[in-house]
Write a protein that binds this DNA or RNA. Structure first.
Lengths: 241, 241
DNA sequence: CGCGGCATTGAGATGCGTCAAATGCGGTGG
DNA sequence: CCACCGCATTTGACGCATCTCAATGCCGCG
């Protein structure tokens, strides 16, 4: 994969070249000089599925960008019931600006690559680069829209509609332009347990609804993880979009 | 509406004096001159319960601050099932910056007073007053935290826990410092139907859970709307906080 | 005093959860 | 390459929490 060949490319830190976050993510707000400055404190990390990135009620001292893989944001009741309150894909930003404590846990749902940097570095940079603050603001608003969409799903949809909504979410994430009468296939980034935690259901109910979709001829499932949706429009009707 | 020209108070527009949004709300980010500028296009409105402030899929051309009363943010499925995805109290800001269309409906839950101003005025001001953008960012992050808290409630709590959580939310909003072994009483800003839409339950289930709380000696209810919580700590335990 | 809207209560239906067993899949080692 | 093991997933039977439908009660207001 070739690095973009523009004249000033030399100024972009090696670490940041070919990084998606520099284009669509928050780093796109930074000048080459600021990128250099930030990259001085930056580390790329590989994280295996299941590893915890930020733990509930920890004081946060670092932020990160997702470079690859899927990160789940979860909340847990004292007795262990868990709910996924958000999914982060590349090049999403992970972290809660302007607050010392996180109220949620961030955990790798798949193998993940992140680019992590100390909170202080970015916080300092926000005051210098207004565009950076703006991008973070946009991301927060976007996550807010998503959270509220999902509240409707959790509060008012049936199990069948929830599972269809989830498949639709994942499908659309892979191909936002998917024709509503087209076929589309993808790998699920979550286990059944995670899907259940995302949908506010049990593993068994998720499984039953998936087999129902299969028997109704809407989807095919191979090796548990790979899903083909035959008709996105029909799926949307199931999801009550 | 002439502005008096004396040295101290002079600079603050009449409209804005004694307005809560100037202290704890977004207007606190503005200089007196900016307040004057903004207030030129501003109107205070009284809105009766049930009136719609912003309608789903309308193009938004105005923002507002809540001055008094409670505004509910709702989402609705094609078949009419509804979910309240947020409650706004004074001095909250209503509106979705950086987007032309709203994906939610804002409706007065009680009688409400708002201070409304055209989108363009505020959008222009954001670029001039970075502190304003910052306050809006903080509000978005705050709403995001609240939305995610509520996702846990919707996805994983029982009816009994949900109703307790709701009472706790309202109680805490009136008195954030409430002693956890103290008594506290307040008026519910929502009808049973609205509470049900907030909790993802039916009216009947909400009613049954309220009478259960009453029979268990945790609360008293007068005239359907006025609630006394005898022991906030016990309520929290019910809510699984 | 009666009417209309909101809330409560009751009885019965059902969707989803719980518990338990069976199946399938991937990885490991012979 | 195959046999085996452990874990994820599916399937089944059953129970219960919540929904649905219906009747009754309550309160403010004309």
């Amino acid at each position: 994969m070739a690095v973009r060949q523009d004249i000033h490319n030399s100024e972009i830190p090696v670490l940041c070249r070919a990084c998606e976050a520099r284009h669509r993510g928050v780093c796109g707000a930074l000048t080459p000089e600021q990128l250099v400055e930030l990259s001085r404190h930056t580390t790329k990390r590989k994280v295996e599925a299941g590893a915890v990135l930020v733990s509930d009620s920890d004081t946060i001292d670092s932020y990160a960008n997702v470079l690859a893989g899927v990160v789940k944001l979860t909340k847990t009741l004292p007795d262990g019931r868990q709910q996924i309150v958000g999914l982060q894909f590349a090049p999403d930003f992970i972290g809660r600006p302007f607050k010392r404590e996180s109220s949620i846990t961030a955990e790798a749902a798949t193998a993940v690559r992140v680019c992590a940097f100390p909170k202080t570095s970015l916080d300092r940079m926000i005051s210098q680069a207004p565009e950076l603050g703006h991008r973070l603001h946009l991301q927060a608003l976007n996550e807010l829209d998503e959270a509220r969409d999902w509240m409707l799903t959790l509060g008012r949809k049936t199990a069948s509609e929830r599972v269809a909504s989830f498949l639709h979410l994942i499908a659309r994430h892979g191909d936002p332009e998917a024709e509503s009468d087209g076929e589309i296939s993808f790998d699920l980034p979550l286990t059944r347990a995670d899907i259940a935690d995302f949908l506010g259901l049990t593993i068994e109910t998720v499984s039953r609804q998936l087999t129902k979709l299969r028997k109704d001829g809407l989807i095919a499932v191979e090796n548990n993880r790979h899903v083909t949706v035959f008709d996105v429009g029909k799926l949307e009707r199931r999801a009550n979009i």
